[in-house]
Simulated scan of single mutants.
Amino acid sequence: MNQQPLISVLMPAYNSELYIAEAIESILNQSYQNIELIIFDDGSSDNTRQVIQSFDDPRIVKILSDQNYGVVRARNDMIDRASGQYIALMDADDIADRTRLEKQLRSLEAGECDLCGSAQWVLDEASGKIKKSKDKFTDADLRSLLSVYCGLCNSAMMGKAEIFKRFKYDTTILTSEDYYLWVVMAAAGYRFLNLKERLITYRRYPAQTSSVHLDKFRITTIEVQKKYLELLGISLDFYPRQLPWTKRVSVGAGLLRALNQRFKGISLQANCEIYARFQFRRNGLWTPLTRLERLMVGLWATFLVN
């Protein structure tokens, strides 16, 4: 490679023979070309390595492991080896829009954010149907909503390399490792942005919605969310969980007050989404009243706390 790449794209791969060629091509064919693509074959037992070896583009850095170490170690090894000023994440079964890196780089270099994602197309592998993701876009919404869920798509993220090299992935968290990474970065004060253009096609598999996977994800998600409140200096008494209305108004309002004081400009919709985690679902005849309650608390947080 004749010049130092500005962007390092990291692609971990494990048994991805069916899709990795399309993923690689979507990065090599980007409108912005000053990149390196680091691919880590994590001990695949199918033909993933052969597919990787079929590409001879000088911008590709190949790391070929005969042992399966897991995606967390693979990502950390690639972060160590990245030489670009920016790091972009990319999974081996997703597809990047041709203008993805160019548009994210523009936002990052303009100082609009420290970490930049985007909206996505979600491809259901079981049905073949594709739909639009539901996203939030501003820093205040994204960082406040991390208290109840992760609104960032790992395969769509790009940010300053120095941030990734400072934090890396926690090797003790193996199910929600990306969620935890964003939580730590958000608590440290780094600014997030989701571009409204759909710059990634994200594949969703039946295994991701299996009961076993969801149970594991639910447990680690709770741990990550509680850690986030700790990092923000917010009492765990305000942790979002279903409560009777006699308790949830005060507890939910307490969390919203703390978040709105920390992240200025949280939208009404985001405040309502956070408060909804304190309510019970499937309220039947009570649904109109719970929606009204959610709206009233959300309006209070949006216009009085802010």
Rank of each mutant, 00 (worst) to 15 (best):
S127M: 07
Q53W: 10
S16F: 13
Y19L: 14
G111W: 01
A88G: 09
G84Y: 03
I20F: 03
L10H: 08
P12H: 00
D135R: 15
Q104V: 04
S26P: 06
Q120E: 13
G70W: 00
D93W: 03
S107M: 08
L89E: 05
L101D: 07
I87C: 03
D42C: 06
D46S: 06
I130E: 11
Y32V: 05
D141H: 10
S44G: 07
I63P: 05
Q104T: 07
I20P: 03
S155K: 10
E22S: 09
E36R: 09
R49C: 12
V61P: 02
A82L: 02
K132C: 11
D91C: 10
A82N: 03
S133H: 07
L37V: 00
G84N: 08
L18P: 05
C116E: 02
D135K: 12
M90G: 03
I52Q: 01
S155C: 12
E125R: 15
A74D: 05
I79T: 06
K103I: 08
L152P: 01
E125W: 11
Q30N: 15
L89S: 02
D42I: 14
V148R: 03
Q120P: 14
V61G: 01
V51R: 02
K136N: 12
Q33C: 10
Q50F: 12
N34Y: 06
I130Q: 12
K103H: 05
L105Y: 04
E36C: 08
D135Y: 10
Q67H: 15
G151E: 04
E102A: 14
K129Q: 14
R98G: 09
R73Y: 12
I52M: 04
D56I: 11
A88D: 07
P12F: 00
A13S: 03
G151N: 11
S118G: 09
S65L: 04
I95V: 13
S147N: 00
E36Q: 11
A126L: 13
S26A: 07
Q85W: 13
N47D: 12
V148I: 14
S155D: 15
A140D: 01
E102I: 05
D97I: 06
I60S: 02
G111D: 00
G111K: 01
L101E: 07
Y86V: 00
I35R: 06
G151T: 00
D97Q: 09
K62T: 02
S65R: 05
C150W: 02
S31T: 14
L89T: 04
L105D: 08
S8N: 05
I60Y: 00
Y14F: 12
L152Q: 08
N29M: 08
R100L: 12
E25I: 12
